[in-house]
Design a protein around this nucleic acid. Structure first.
Lengths: 137, 137
DNA sequence: CAGGATCCGATCCGATACTG
DNA sequence: CAGTATCGGATCGGATCCTG
């Protein structure tokens, strides 16, 4: 076994149970693996948000993409959208119970990211130095 | 802490520590959030694989995308690529220690996916029924 | 076997303009 | 305020052909 790693943990092995290939990971990744979904979930994990505030909280997202993103999250049952028929219109977004359960995963993702971000950056620099002129990003 | 939610979950709160927006999640998602990376990691979690076998294990992946995917994973330090100068050439791929640590995350992803896949499908059907003729996928 | 090179359609996404 | 509609550039990714 490979070793030397700090606390050997419990030997992961993702396998999915044998001959299967996909599990169902692609299904989740197709929803939260896009450019903005996770950031929206992170912001909504903080509490109820209206459209504008959500947009301001996520620098760089266009109004079009915010609309598409929350609409898809709503469709998947991760976000609840509430419209108050006032003038001007007021729409609130919040996570559903399922949406909240997703935040655990996002947290794990953020933690892993923080732990390995510098190692990844280093590896990348070394690779780029060793492979001059490669268009792999 | 703001609790008082419907009770179902344990109120995670991802926050990242206050005013920040991104954490570093995007950085990870940009690497494993693409169409094939996770599936490659899942397969390599099972053990060392050669190029062809890897491709056969992941139905639908083109040779070009497999090449690009493993190259990027190698660049990020998640996969180690070993070339044996034989004829015909033989190249082996395996996860690094950092790559293995990622499998924990993937496992969590798979678990969450399995747990909610039907709920998501249901929600989607209901939404589609309630919103006829919407191009949100 | 393992991949590099090219072509090209599909999709994503930002910018912009308009609406109730 | 909270969207919808449309356009166009950028990127993604599949198919195909070629090589050591």
């Amino acid at each position: 076994m490979s070793v030397g790693h700090t606390a050997v943990t419990t030997e992961p092995v993702v396998s999915c149970g044998g001959e299967e290939e996909d599990c169902g990971i692609r299904e989740v990744l197709d929803r939260i693996g896009d450019k903005w979904s996770v950031l929206v979930v992170v912001e909504l994990a903080q509490g109820v948000r209206r459209f504008r505030r959500l947009q301001r909280a996520i620098p760089g997202i266009s109004q079009r993409m915010l609309t598409l993103t929350v609409r898809r999250l709503e469709r998947d049952g991760l976000v609840r959208r509430t419209v108050y028929p006032t003038v001007p219109p007021q729409v609130e977004y919040e996570l559903t119970a399922m949406g909240h359960s997703l935040t655990h995963l996002v947290r794990a993702l953020a933690d892993w990211s923080a732990d390995h971000r510098s190692a990844i950056a280093d590896s990348r620099h070394r690779w780029d130095a060793a492979n001059p002129g490669s268009d792999i990003r």
